[in-house]
Design a protein around this nucleic acid. Structure first.
Lengths: 208, 208, 208, 208
DNA sequence: AATGAATGAGCGTTCATTCAT
DNA sequence: GATGAATGAACGCTCATTCAT
């Protein structure tokens, strides 16, 4: 069996086991068995548990960001592009729950080396969203430009909301059927909020 | 040294170590040493690693929800109350980063028993937010009542956004100084978005 | 509470726990709790786990040998005395199963110090039986005196048979009702066997 | 080194250590060291301390019962067969004192799972003896058939006597030289006793 | 007379990792 | 290319034992 195929099987197995058990609790024995290979072979191809986990993170992160980027159709108007990006995100995470679990739940909780890898992914997501926000603002006739820090904050809020909704809708119904509805909820929330902000309509505490 | 004091020291140490290392990677030796006690004493007071982790989760969850509830001043108008709740949330998570890390990052990734405990906390947060949203809608002269499912979705999105922002602002600057700014960002986003929604102003995909 | 009473309670508890769990698996915590005293008090009175176990063995051994000796009525004819001794043995072991378990099952399996104590008891039992055998032989008109080694062997066989029957009849029916029957079985077996031996009627392998 | 060989070495070491120390006091470290292997290998091959002990019991029990069955030559007359069986029993226990100690002293004192395994062995021994008694009775022209319960009692008594004598002769002299003598003592005792019983010659307490 | 508080030492078990083949 | 055999190191947990009071 060619190395490339074997390696993909190993990564598939590793993602599944890491998602189910967590990084520490996952055992190389279980991964090797699920991959249908012997343990020394896993070490020959992937060096160590740490490298294996990193490889999983990188592969899943690349797949996710690629899915989102592909969903954002560059030719569409700004509002459609935000909408498409959200749908792409929800669709991919729903279709690859193990990969999403590794990225969202496991990678950030196990020390620096992995946290850095996943932070890079997150930054890419935030970059995409930042650009979408900027474009959206411009497209809807922005009259009150937002400071850079606030845009970053909004992007983080949006990503967090998306992550939270992804988890919520996944556990509410196994089927990904309502993915569209979930996206719509968030889109409504974000879109109208953004429009107000970019037109200077803000809320302010009375006493401040 | 009286038992109560020792027990609190142990929980403090456990929260710190669990936050830094994760549940599996944390060793009872390290926790005991950080608590300034011997390992058998930790077991005598807290039974097992699992019980110790549960105790940490319960203590930190109770503290967080109490902080949020205390911040939401029942006498204030609805917008102020949402604002206050957000500030309370951000202030508490910034002041107790280890506790927040245990709740947000570690507890959900290590098996059913802990996930259930933290799900209960999250539900309490969502409940609080749901009520705030409902009141806010009523207070601002709602003309387009939202279906229950959508309110739940919004609440989850808001909580997710808040969680994400908490993590972002915590790692951006150790100081809790900008907590107010973070809360303002989210408040603006949420408040204006909500007002539009409750007055029937929505975004809809063109082709749908 | 006077020391003597407390000490007896401790020994009672220890015998029960040692019988149920074995020497190593028995924990001083459980013994102290069952005795209704604190652990340091147990140590104050009985020094160590080893000493406590020794004390149990000595007390139970003394009680058993006393019961057997009391049962053997010195005034009766030899056959009656053997019969009475057997009945005394079975009655006592049935009435004190924990003590018997400690002596028979636990004490011999846990290293030299305890094995020696229980060997002493066994020797006393063998001595009693040896004397009974000798007397019985004399009483029934012995025509073929038995060598000393053989008497010792017979005594050991008899004690072993008695021990085995004690266990068997105990587990066959919880009630000690059939103790008499058990004793009769053994008595028949031993008595007639002895009579033949002491009159020179032996079995011998054909080719020897 | 092939697995089979290693596994036998481990069982040999385990039998020796369990015999010397008892189940609880035996440490897996000592067993592994005596077996000339590392501890993880012992676990890889034999799963757990409990499984290891069970494996010891089963192996030694099978060896003992096989030795006795092999000694009982089916073609010989009944008295010879009883004689041969006794000699086989004494010879095997003398040649494998550790195995015998595990079966007789340790296995019965450490909880249900092991007690059941050794009870099965004992039942097999009792069955063999029961059959030998029945055949012996028939062979010697039985005129007073014994009730089934009494036969069972006699078998238990005989096995107990044999077990006791095995221990006694083993500790009296390490050499197995006197095994023949020990067997003769018991055979004389049992044979003549049986013959009387099966011809209705019994002892009865005077007052009963 | 009696105990709450505390620990050093050790055990059963697991796991990532490496050779020799 | 692929593996059966093997291990050093560490971890969760328990227990006999001792002080200070």
């Amino acid at each position: 069996m060619p190395r490339e195929v074997r390696e993909r099987q190993m990564l598939d197995a590793a993602v599944a086991v890491f998602a189910r058990r967590g990084y520490r609790a996952a055992s190389m024995d279980e991964i090797a068995e699920l991959a249908g290979a012997s343990k020394p072979l896993v070490y020959l191809y992937l060096n160590s548990k740490e490298d294996l986990f990193s490889a999983c993170i990188r592969r899943e992160a690349a797949a996710l960001i690629a899915a989102v980027r592909a969903a954002v159709d560059p030719g569409a108007p700004a509002d459609r592009r935000l909408w498409n990006g959200l749908r792409g995100f929800f669709a991919h995470t729903a279709a690859h729950p193990d990969g999403w679990a590794v990225l969202h739940c496991q990678a950030r909780t196990h020390g620096e080396p992995f946290a850095l890898e996943v932070a890079a992914l997150r930054q890419q997501l935030v970059d995409v969203v930042t650009q979408l926000i900027t474009e959206t603002a411009a497209d809807s006739g922005c009259t009150a430009p937002l400071p850079e820090t606030e845009v970053a904050g909004l992007a983080h809020a949006l990503v967090g909301a998306a992550e939270s909704l992804a988890g919520w809708s996944n556990e509410r119904d196994g089927a990904a059927a309502c993915e569209r509805e979930t996206a719509a909820t968030l889109m409504n929330f974000a879109w109208t909020g953004l429009e107000n902000l970019t037109h200077g309509r803000r809320w302010a505490p009375v006493g401040a």
